[in-house]
Write a protein that binds this DNA or RNA. Structure first.
Ligand code: FES
Ligand code: FES
Lengths: 146, 146
DNA sequence: CCTAACTGATACTAGTTTACTATCAGTTAT
DNA sequence: ATAACTGATAGTAAACTAGTATCAGTTAGG
């Protein structure tokens, strides 16, 4: 059960970088190098972020992408939905006898419940929170080294 | 994000049937017909249940499989793990700068937390509970029709 | 005004997974 | 004997994943 695919993984990391450098245009090449993500793959991913107005782009030298949506409003859930399609149930077997006789399925509501839970959890994880977590770790580090 | 694949879906339904007919040998053909599951696919699935000692088989005419593990002890989680492999994290990018610098990742613990939650929820859903749910629905139906 | 560093758009591809299908051998109740 | 079963295993089409490759257009700086 793979909750995140590579492109979602990469996009989260890219957005963390962009959130930490808010206001600046960062090139795909720079993100690719700093995060060890395949360049062309990352470019596709960034194009989708542009289409979804999470970042804006600037062409030419010194160009790149700049984050425009507030990191506090970018949830991992919307990134998953953007790159992996909607969270959706596995297909229903309409002609299944169990369901035919009882009108509704006993398994599916349970799965639906769990899926809703997963969606809720992912909706709570925002880019802002992840950036803050990085900050907290740095503080601890500074404290230990003092 | 597909939590259940077809084989897990089919095996749950097959086990519901077998649990409702505990003690009896039911053939793959019969389950296949009653649940509208592809026969050969179902046979593979049942063989795995046999290997995992959840059912026993009897060859020849009048044969089939019989459930031997208590339905209260068969969780959907173990079926998922049996048919979809362990719930596992998407691969880690060890050389990732964010993680290199901070020793640990900020995203991964969150995903791990959610995955553990999903596993816990699926471990609570047993075949026995699903069979009971079917029973409850039947009762409601009887009550309404009275 | 040239050129190097950028994005825009899109086509292609190898490998893996999913959801099956097919085959042949052996078993057992009637 | 034979029809209805399981045991074991090979094959396969389609979809998905994780990329790669190309070419066209844009822009800052010398
Ligand atoms: S198979 Fe469709 S709701 Fe159960
Ligand atoms: S990439 Fe490995 S723990 Fe973050």
């Amino acid at each position: 059960m793979k909750l995140l695919t590579k492109n979602t993984d990469y996009v989260v990391r890219a957005l963390i970088v962009l959130a930490m450098k808010r206001g600046q245009f960062i090139s795909a090449r720079e993100i690719s190098k700093s995060q060890n993500t395949p360049y062309q793959f990352l470019r596709q991913i960034l194009q989708k972020l542009i289409q979804n107005k999470i970042v804006v782009s600037k062409e030419g030298i010194g160009g790149g992408v700049r984050i425009v949506k507030s990191p506090s409003k970018i949830s991992v859930l919307e990134l998953i939905e953007m790159f992996q399609g909607n969270l959706e149930l596995s297909d229903c077997m309409f002609r299944n006898k169990i369901c035919q006789n009882r009108k509704t399925c006993v398994l599916r509501p349970e799965i639906k419940r769990i899926e809703n839970n997963v969606a809720l959890e992912f909706s709570k994880i925002t880019i802002e929170k992840l950036v803050k977590k990085i900050g907290e770790k740095d503080e601890k580090k500074l404290y230990r080294n003092r």
